[in-house]
Design a protein around this nucleic acid. Sequence first.
DNA 1: CTCCAGTTCTTTAGCGCTACAGTACGACAG
DNA 2: CTGTCGTACTGTAGCGCTAAAGAACTGGAG
Lengths: 345, 345
Amino acid sequence: MTLKTVADRVGVSAMTVSNAFSRPDQLSAALRERILAVAAELGYVGPDPAARTLARGATGTVGILLTESPQHAFYDEYTIAFLAAITGELARAGLALTLLPSGRAGGVIPARDVAMDGAIAYSCRPGVDGVDWLRKRRLPLVFVDQQPERDHTSINVDDRAAAAAAARHVVDLGHRRVALVTVGRDAPDPREAPSDYMVARQRMRGWLDVLEPAGIEPVVRRSEYDSPEAGAEALRDLLDGPDRPTAVLCFSDALAAAVVRVAEDAGLRVPADLSVVGFDDTPLARRMRPALTTVHQDAAEKGRLAAAELAAAVARHRAGEEPVVRRLELPTELVVRESTAPPPA
Amino acid sequence: MTLKTVADRVGVSAMTVSNAFSRPDQLSAALRERILAVAAELGYVGPDPAARTLARGATGTVGILLTESPQHAFYDEYTIAFLAAITGELARAGLALTLLPSGRAGGVIPARDVAMDGAIAYSCRPGVDGVDWLRKRRLPLVFVDQQPERDHTSINVDDRAAAAAAARHVVDLGHRRVALVTVGRDAPDPREAPSDYMVARQRMRGWLDVLEPAGIEPVVRRSEYDSPEAGAEALRDLLDGPDRPTAVLCFSDALAAAVVRVAEDAGLRVPADLSVVGFDDTPLARRMRPALTTVHQDAAEKGRLAAAELAAAVARHRAGEEPVVRRLELPTELVVRESTAPPPA
DNA sequence: CTCCAGTTCTTTAGCGCTACAGTACGACAG
DNA sequence: CTGTCGTACTGTAGCGCTAAAGAACTGGAG
């Protein structure tokens, strides 16, 4: 059941049937009607997408490569808002979004083996080899929340400045004993071996930009993942020590929420005994009691932009034009809510 | 830069290069090494996915068609957990997941035009034409939370029984003035024109199965979407009336949360003045204060199962075997928390 | 009546790969 | 020395479609 079947039945060439489906202006309305009618009668749905993809050189699909497993991505409200915005914007360009598992299963490496017109790499660490495959395939690429590269458009926020603003806030409140709860896989001392993950590294730098000049030596806790459990784990022992911190700066709202929970379980009041600052300003931050002081960044706008940039890059690529590489930096803003206060007397 | 380029350079046939990449057991290790080395040197990444898809008849991708826009899907925690589980399970089978926008943009209808090996239709109403396209393409399909069809495996819960359990709970507590807040597009009287959306219809039936025999005439409020705003809107006028309901049964936790918020804004105490029951048992239900009484269903298991069934169906389809159609029904359980109590005296 | 342009349909030539059916050749039994 | 088998590689023939160029016909201007 192919174009040919329909063509023979109607008594025209295959090309004419192809045109009936894909380029209506290339034949008379009457013939087109007849072809479509016969196709319907034969149960022919339309041109096979795989064959069309090969012949046209375009798939109508772009991929997104997420940190670790896509599965993990769904636990973070920030990522979800980002994804939602992407799908919305892509739909306007008639593109579907494929979630690429970063690993390999049964010899299949999706980043290498899935047909697509372009891809977004979101928050990937340098080691993730999915990114490598995408690069090698010379696909139009947009990098979000990760190390920019010369040949590809990237979208980031000024994580360093944003983190510095958060640190400045607690220092201004008078805190001297500060803990940093962040993510990444490296040694706990940030100055020795900064995180391999660019965003974490930049936020760490931002925090230290303010804390060090103030003569504050922060305690650092790192967990591999940005999950609530990790946050809880990271903090638990901190609260037992004699020099318990009076303020905690967190890599994300998710970590901050966990920190607050652990602190309250330990009998501490937030913010009276402990100030906590998050990052991202997810819905969670507003929902929490006390509402979380955090750094706002616009996930929806980031997603919309990423999708729009990628769609444009794909269109240019298809037209044989030169790629346009942009470095976009979205604004952030410290949002002071109820989880921060001066340290206990 | 194709297989041929590499083949000519090495001095072997294109087929041998294809085998070097895709079927290592078909050639000597030494030759394979040489081919891979030359390929790397030339910057040849591997077989072009589009061409391979056409020749093999398989894409390595399955689609998911979501109610309305995928964008909307991301606002619901239940759907998110479901998606997370799907991607996790699919990754094990080496499959990527493509989110199919249900609409059309610029003449592109993803459900018709995107190459894929199979698809999940999730919570789609009968009218959604994406499902139609998928059916016509004779793709392996799994239906989740929607009307089962003869030729395709479906996964559901017994929505009717689950809703009945929720209704039984409030009736047992002594409530006589009950409101139903649900979704769907039809007339407000459920007996006249039941919702076109099967899940909503079943839950409505379940509620009525209990309420009617008890002689209770519920007030019904329907909104088109399962969103918090819709829930708020639906309830607002109800609380003003003289015969204000003392219990509200909701289609989802999201709606229930909105109902609680509106009630509290109106000065009512939950559950003392108003009992509220949700559906799904999302994390939100546990997080709420008061914690929400709701019907538990396992989103992760549903997703895992859907993905596993689809992967199996795709494998069978590829092997030319007969499809196996299953009707899976997952268990539910009423979880009584703090949002329900006897009606005010 | 000729010529040109516009419309409508056809022909040709792939897109880049893989399934399958070979061929060549060495090893090994009879 | 012949026949059989297994391994390693090649040739052929598509997969189903579309871009691009060409042919046939129409109608109107000159």
